[in-house]
């Protein structure tokens, strides 16, 4: 049960933390969903070629980071709308990944690890998983304690003051966005490695749930952690309930969304009761 929860939660948590970094910098990356997909595909490709899942997940992470770097540089420099650029990426990346898949493997469908190399482990934890935990810890540390995180938060809170202190808006924002790309790529890698296959559309809405978790978690690491665990529990409950009740399946599918909206409203109610208006 705990394991199920962890397995559902970890990729979303990673993506959510990535999104959180970009949001703290004042430029929310809305393309989490497709960046997860991209990370998943590249993880597959590199794992196979390098015969190393660790190299795979790292490459997946880097690939998503690189795509973010290119497109958001264009958006920031071209004074474009960050948000619409993200929507564009959400359409473009799945198309591009499928095209790449059919060019490279002659199929845009499921790609499996046929001779999957054994995952090297440290203390019986697979290295890619260790990599993800490390990345999570790094992001957590970065936003809550490090000097770079301070710059990122300052840029989101008060760009003008940050600028006076010599924090470059472009560099800070693109760095935050790239971190969100890296995290999403790793999240995608986790999905692929846990399935030992790349399945089209493997992200399946997790990027959007991750975005909701950022808001629900009130943009704080602990809050985001709690929110993703909540979503994980809702999903798990829905899966378990399917075996017990004869409720129509689409209603179960709606559950995480309903949970997210309800949680947002409850949170709104609570925070508005505090301050008199």
């Amino acid at each position: 049960m705990i394991q199920s929860l962890l397995q559902y939660t970890l990729p979303i948590l990673l993506a959510s933390f990535g999104g959180l970094v970009s949001d703290l910098a004042g430029t929310l990356n809305i393309a989490l969903e497709s960046l997860i997909l991209l990370g998943a595909f590249v993880t597959y490709v590199v794992s196979i070629h390098a015969q190393s899942p660790l190299a795979g997940i790292m490459a997946g992470s880097l690939a998503s980071g690189a795509v973010v770097l290119v497109f958001y540089t264009l958006a920031l420099k071209g004074r474009a709308n960050i948000f619409v650029t993200g929507l564009g990426l959400n359409l473009l990346i799945p198309g591009a990944v499928a095209t790449a898949s059919s060019l490279m493997y002659g199929t845009r469908g499921v790609l499996r690890f046929d001779n999957f190399p054994l995952q090297p482990t440290v203390l019986s934890v697979p290295l890619p998983l260790l990599f993800s935990y490390a990345m999570l810890a790094c992001i957590w540390y970065l936003i809550s304690a490090s000097s770079a995180g301070l710059r990122i938060r300052a840029m989101g809170l008060h760009p003008h003051v940050a600028q006076i202190r010599g924090v470059s808006p472009f560099r800070t924002r693109i760095a935050a966005l790239v971190i969100s790309g890296l995290a999403c790529g790793a999240a995608g890698g986790l999905l692929v490695l846990s399935l030992r296959a790349y399945v089209p559309n493997v992200s399946a809405g997790r990027g959007w749930i991750a975005l909701a978790a950022i808001y629900l978690g009130k943009r704080r690491p602990w809050g985001v952690l709690a929110a993703t665990v909540l979503f994980g529990a809702a999903e798990l409950a829905a899966n378990i309930a399917q075996g017990m009740f004869a409720l129509p399946s689409p209603l179960f599918m709606a559950l995480p969304y309903v949970a997210a909206v309800t949680a947002l409203i409850i949170q709104g109610l609570i925070s508005h009761r505090k301050k008199p208006s």
Binding site: S4, P11, V202, A204, E235, N239, Q242, G243, S249
Partner: peptide, 19 residues
């Protein structure tokens, strides 16, 4: 049990695990 779509392999895995 039903996944809800034809692509969410992670969810397929979770459902199978539950089963």
């Amino acid at each position: 049990r039903v996944v809800g779509n034809w692509y969410d392999a992670s969810k397929g895995k979770e459902l199978a695990r539950e089963m």
